[in-house]
Design a protein around this nucleic acid. Structure first.
Lengths: 235, 235
DNA sequence: GGATCTTGGTTGTATATACAAGTTTTTCAG
DNA sequence: CTGAAAAACTTGTATATACAACCAAGATCC
């Protein structure tokens, strides 16, 4: 590993462990250069790159400081479906259909940066609002980043909440489609007649790369999406 | 302006003007250094920062190249459907079906802060990618904010672009639904068989209040949405 | 022809240095 | 004690240099 990368790692550990709290001052370029026996330019690069990632902020003449972690997630305030249901005054529950390890399909491998047929974790969950199925969640999870995924109790905690705690998200990518549900989906969403569904494909990233790929399917009559969006044509 | 920033500006102009097309090779660090009479490290910084912005990509031992312009998704940037189509290498066109003033329906009145049956502008447009209908746009516009709306030529300029110029948007609210298109919609989208469609309801605001309410309907097979989103249950 | 080696070009990392620009602290004159 | 000047420290920009890693193309050898 390159020297500047080692310094970055060191600083990230200090921040994530809490040793360097928010808005606290971090060592200056010269201090880091001496501590790690590198030139100032090398230490500077570490500080610079962390600043570009909004992990630090710097002020000329003053110093470098730990940024508020909140501002990182404010951009991707991804609301939890459980909170969403409960805030509407309904009872949230979930039914775990599957939680296993399986060989990675090609599409998933590309999305998560894994190799085809390499082991990948897979979960299949139905989310309920009161007694009504609201969403079918099929999720692939990178085992390298979340090795204990299959040991969790997802009746109690949603995968998304668990992943947020384990691997702090730095980015999320979404695609929304209108689809015609297959029979399996209809069954688990308790659709007597098929109806148009929204399918949200969500890929989340942490500092170390792609964490999970989720397909969230909801009946159009029961669920909507809101927020700030951009258009994008399929490729 | 700092030297490295001047080099960045120069390169951005070349790229945006089309002089340097996608995936074309850009000058090497040494070439830029000589052209701008700076050191290699300064030229390098310009290349480096453009790479971090995903405007270039670089390969060690090979060179630096213009990246695909595709997904520049900043949060508030609402992209124009015409730009979106054209950036995909297709020909954009629009067909104006209706452009009138009519009495305001109740829902629209609530959304735009008008009174029921008060005059409101209404436009109905089909957007095409090459010869294929891509989106049906039904839009209600607040005449108090945009009095000249019905005088525009919307074959030439999209309503969204026109509105952006007249009343700078300060906020936008979106709802995405999966719907079953009615016969009228099927006809104008040239759907032989009905298929699930995405309907984006977009309400835009300027400094002075609600400007317009638009219903944008696209076949699920032809259009997707991307970006940063939040979930929201229907009210 | 085909495999291997060499060479030149490109990006990647690292260092030492210099000065500019901004802020904070210290010093010192009044 | 006050206020201004000076010093010290910080980040920002720029340069010159060196070597490493990598790649493509041409040269060489068999």
């Amino acid at each position: 590993m390159a020297k500047f990368a080692e310094i970055k790692e060191f600083m990230l550990r200090q921040i994530e462990s809490g040793a360097w709290p928010e808005h606290s001052r971090v060592p200056s370029e010269n201090e880091l250069a001496e501590q790690f026996s590198v030139s100032r330019m090398t230490a500077r690069r570490a500080l610079q790159e962390l600043t570009e990632q909004s992990i630090l902020y710097r002020t000329q003449g003053v110093g470098s400081f730990v940024a508020a972690l909140k501002s990182q997630s404010s951009l991707l305030e991804i609301r939890n479906i459980a909170d969403e249901v409960q805030s509407g005054g309904h009872a949230y529950s979930a039914k775990l259909l599957q939680l296993t390890e399986l060989p990675c399909p090609t599409i998933v491998a590309n999305a998560l940066g894994l190799k085809r047929n390499e082991p990948v974790f897979f979960s299949l969950i139905v989310h309920f609002s009161d007694a009504q199925p609201l969403q079918l969640e099929a999720r692939y999870v990178n085992p390298k980043q979340v090795p204990l995924y299959t040991k969790q109790d997802f009746q109690e905690i949603t995968p998304h909440l668990y992943l947020s705690e384990i691997a702090p998200l730095t980015e999320a990518e979404h695609i929304v489609e209108a689809i015609w549900p297959d029979e399996f989906t209809c069954q688990h969403l308790a659709l007597k007649k098929p109806e148009p569904c929204l399918r949200l494909t969500r890929r989340t990233f942490s500092r170390d790369g792609a964490v999970s790929l989720a397909y969230l399917t909801s009946p159009g009559s029961r669920y909507r999406l809101g927020g700030h969006l951009n258009f994008a044509l399929p490729r």
